[in-house]
Design a binder for these strands. Structure first.
Lengths: 195, 195
DNA sequence: GTCTATATCCAGATAGAC
DNA sequence: GTCTATCTGGATATAGAC
């Protein structure tokens, strides 16, 4: 697994992915062209097929890479001595990361590429990250159930969808992340205590 | 303005728009092709240029049409004797309309078409609808300022982004609209009263 | 107002030489 | 592993006949 051939191959794959993201940022995700990606790494288009089976396979690698990055960003960001601290910082890290990487947000959350659907394995990473970090800490506060976790997801992605579409590079929505957190907690903690 | 030539022309434009939406729903917004749109209305592609200056002009008409529909849907839906009643019903109408028309949501809110930016006049309709309905009733409750209105927008679009991406045709998120409304109101009314 | 023909260009993907 | 050459098909848009 760690022979030089595999290492080189992975390094080239990483270079291709990086070039793909640069072009996706510039032209839009759906406008990606294999010819341009190849040119950006000093290759011709057919050579990419050594590294990716198809264009959708490249999109899937971009998706999987981003899912893995989010897992790291949230895990590293969601630190603190209480579930509430961790949740607040986790939400913050999630929003900041995607506000800085709008194309990654679109690919992961908004599905703007006609014909591309992530492979179930790639999709599962996102689910797993959420379950093992956010959902766990929410449960520690007595906030459980699909409705409550879906609301969490709606709030975080709502801030990001608006930020990216209507104020790119600004902070008109990301600056609301603490308010959003407090709003969510006030409502759901209270509901939890009612029982 | 109301001569038969204008009427016929507008009717044909409407038929083209309808065909464009049918294809956008089936294949994705960014995959629209003028050839296919033309074929769907019994024409060849060049004939469309009698009705629209370019493909982006067609997208802009789709955008403007949707913005107008949202204006009607929200105005008709946001009825009630109190601002709070109207707001709740307005949020409901907005979410239901877009949950039933995901492609329209994507075009209006998510901007998934590379190279397409709505004309300022088309964009202004959305702003105006929000200002004259939602923002007015929020202000009547003492909820003012960009932060509060941005939060409203984030919540509604958050529900829709998730609903459309992760549960198309379902109600895992749209069924949260009343909770979301209560959550928003509890938080912002209280903050208003603090002053 | 619609058509055919065409300009111009680009796409993803494969075959097979090196 | 990378290339050239090519297949096959598509795109938007314009010119000009009818």
């Amino acid at each position: 697994m760690l022979d030089t051939r595999t290492l080189r191959r992975d390094a080239t794959r990483a270079r291709i992915l990086e070039a793909a993201w640069t072009l996706a940022k510039r032209d839009g995700l759906a406008a990606l062209s294999l010819r341009e990606v190849a040119a950006a790494v000093g290759m011709r288009a057919p050579s990419l097929y050594t590294y990716f089976d198809s264009k959708n396979d490249l999109y899937d690698a971009m998706y999987a890479e981003t899912a893995a990055m989010v897992a790291t960003v949230v895990r590293d960001g969601a630190v603190g001595s209480t579930p509430k601290d961790r949740l607040r910082r986790g939400m913050h890290a999630f929003v900041v990361f995607f506000a800085e990487n709008p194309a990654r947000y679109q690919l992961l959350v908004e599905r703007p590429v006609p014909g591309f659907v992530p492979r179930p394995e790639s999709f599962a990473v996102s689910r797993e990250t959420f379950a093992s970090t956010i959902a766990t800490d929410l449960a520690a506060l007595g906030i459980t159930g699909e409705r409550a976790t879906n609301m969490w997801r709606a709030i975080t992605t709502g801030l990001l969808t608006q930020q990216i579409a209507n104020d790119p590079g600004g902070d008109g929505w990301t600056s609301l992340v603490d308010d959003a957190f407090d709003m969510y907690m006030t409502f759901h903690e209270r509901k939890g205590k009612k029982r």
